[in-house]
């Protein structure tokens, strides 16, 4: 065997430029898988959460069970959640997507519901007075006004999903989590650190993207520049109550 080369890969440094250049494709694939898993799961969560929130608001009796069930799901640790889905989905990406979607449900249902309940009664009365039917009122008055609260939930759910996707490595579909898992087994410091930093960057990117989308979708709030309106109360409380789950 020839003498090992003295570069940062051989020295197993935490920060290693050679790692970035030689494993570019692996990193890119992992990032893509990570983004895909996150986006699909949050969209799935949204598709399930919206009808649940509407049901919980329309029928009072449904609110308790819907909120209770989603809270129970949120309490189950991620590793256990993925494990419980194993008999249904096997070692597949679908398992990770369904698990993450179930997690996002709590945050989404709660925030959509809070948004819908925050719609001023005068706005609803005005819509009814103008002859809007229930469907038109929901689509053109209530949902747009509920958007800021719903988007806050969506942002938290998405950021959490990015972090939780890494746990999918246990079934081999964890995006960047796979690299962290492999790096742990081979004590490959540069790989673990790079993948971890990329995870955080993806989360921040999604958060900013959704913030931009919210601004675009709610032009009537732009003039008032969210800051004084949000103040200490509502925004901080929403963050505080949401918590976070690994």
């Amino acid at each position: 065997m020839t003498a090992p080369p003295d570069d940062c890969l051989a020295r197993n440094d935490w920060i290693c430029g050679d790692y970035l250049s030689t494993r570019r494709h692996i990193l890119l694939d992992a990032v893509l898988e990570h983004v895909q898993l996150t986006v699909v799961s949050v969209l799935l969560g949204l598709v399930i959460a919206l009808p649940l929130a509407l049901l919980a608001r329309r029928r009072r009796w449904a609110a308790g069970p819907v909120l209770g069930l989603t809270t129970v799901l949120y309490t189950i640790p991620s590793l256990a959640m993925f494990s419980l889905l194993l008999p249904l989905y096997g070692l597949s990406a679908a398992l990770v997507v369904v698990g993450l979607a179930l997690y996002s449900l709590t945050l989404l249902v709660r925030n959509i519901l809070a948004g819908l309940e925050g719609v001023p009664a005068e706005a609803k009365d005005a819509a009814r007075g103008m002859g809007y039917g229930p469907t038109r009122q929901l689509l053109t008055v209530e949902l747009p006004l509920a958007l800021p609260a719903a988007m806050a939930g969506l942002r938290i759910a998405t950021v959490s999903a990015v972090a939780l996707t890494t746990v999918g490595a246990i079934v081999g579909h964890g995006g960047l989590g796979n690299l962290i898992y492999a790096g742990m087994n081979s004590f490959f410091k540069a790989q673990v650190l790079t993948a971890s930093v990329l995870c955080v960057l993806i989360a921040v990117a999604f958060d900013l993207l959704l913030l931009g989308a919210e601004r675009l979708l709610t032009p009537w709030r732009r003039g008032r520049a969210g800051r004084p309106a949000r103040g200490r109360g509502a925004g901080a409380r929403r963050l505080a109550a949401a918590g976070r789950r690994p």
Binding site: V159, A163, T166, V167, I180, C199, V200, P246
Partner: peptide, 19 residues
């Protein structure tokens, strides 16, 4: 702090500390 904590994967921190 709560937002930052949410964005950092627990699994990543566990592995980083292990190494």
């Amino acid at each position: 702090l709560a937002n930052i904590g949410r964005a950092v994967p627990t699994f990543a921190i566990l592995v980083l500390l292990l190494l």
